[in-house]
Design a protein around this nucleic acid. Structure first.
Length: 209
DNA sequence: AACAAGATTAACT
DNA sequence: GTTAATCTTGTTA
C-alpha cells in the first residue's frame, strides 16, 4: 500500500507551468467527499501561462474576485463555473504573484468507496466518465466549494505522485481546446494527454493497488 | 443596469 | 454537424 502523500509546495512552485502540466500526466487525483474517497489517474491537462497568455483568465494582469486565487502560491485549487453548468478544476502553480494554472481535462477512475477498488475491471459507464473537464469534476465530486483548497494538506483534495509510470513517448501534445478567441496563443502546444488504453495498461502494469 | 461571452456537454438531425 | 441548457463574470459591445 502506497502512502499516496500530496505533492509538495516545492513541486507546485516551479515557474514552468508547461513542464508541470506534462508532469501531472499519470499522477493521481484524490478527493474526499462526504466521507467517501475517490482516486483517478490524470490523463489530460492544459497549461495556462499567466498574464502573457491570451487564453488565461489572468491575461494582461486581470485581477478580479474570480482570478485572485491564481495569484497565490502554487499548490492551491482554482475552481470556476463554465457555461453556467460545469465546475472546472485547475491547479494553481508558480510562486506567489505568478498566476499560472493547469486545467485538468481528463482522469481515469481507479477507486471509489461506493464500488471499492476497480483494479482492471472499471465498470463500462465509468471508463469514460472522466474524459472532459466538466465530467471530471462531476465524477470526482468537485465543485466551487473547493476553490482555494490547499492541495498540499492532504485533507479534502490533493494529487499524489506515487503509483503510475507513464512513458514520455506515450504523452501526446496539441493545442488547447475551446480557446479560439486567444489569437496567436491558440496555437501554443500546451495540451498534454494519453490514450485511455495507455492509462489502462499503465495502471495494470504498475500494479496500482 | 444591462449585456455578451464563455477553458462544456449531451442530445439531437 | 448543430443546438439547447444555464449563470457567473467582466465589460460597457
Amino acid at each position: 500500500m502506497h502512502d499516496k502523500l500530496p505533492l509538495s509546495p516545492e513541486f507546485y512552485a516551479n515557474s514552468d507551468v508547461v513542464l508541470l502540466a506534462r508532469k501531472l500526466i499519470g499522477k493521481t487525483l484524490i478527493v474526499m467527499r462526504d466521507g467517501q474517497r475517490r482516486e483517478a489517474v490524470i490523463t489530460e491537462t492544459e497549461a495556462y501561462a499567466g498574464i502573457t497568455d491570451r487564453a488565461s483568465h489572468a491575461w494582461g494582469g486581470r485581477f478580479t474576485s474570480r482570478t485572485e486565487v491564481m495569484y497565490r502560491r502554487g499548490g492551491l485549487a482554482y475552481v470556476y463555473l463554465c457555461y453556467g453548468l460545469h465546475s472546472l478544476f485547475n491547479v494553481v502553480t508558480g510562486p506567489e504573484g505568478t498566476p499560472h494554472a493547469i486545467l485538468l481535462r481528463g482522469v481515469y477512475p481507479v477507486l471509489n468507496d461506493a464500488k471499492m477498488n476497480f483494479g482492471n475491471q472499471v465498470p463500462d459507464d465509468l471508463r469514460k466518465a472522466g474524459n472532459g473537464p466538466g465530467k471530471l469534476s462531476r465524477l470526482m465530486g468537485i465543485d466551487r466549494d473547493m476553490n482555494g483548497a490547499d492541495l498540499c494538506s492532504g485533507s479534502d483534495v490533493w494529487i499524489t505522485g506515487t503509483g503510475i509510470e507513464i512513458m514520455e513517448d506515450d504523452i501526446s501534445v496539441s493545442t488547447r481546446i475551446g480557446i479560439g478567441y486567444a489569437g496567436k496563443d491558440a496555437g501554443l502546444p500546451y495540451r498534454f494527454f494519453i490514450d485511455r488504453a495507455v492509462a489502462e495498461q499503465a495502471i495494470k502494469k504498475t500494479g496500482y493497488f
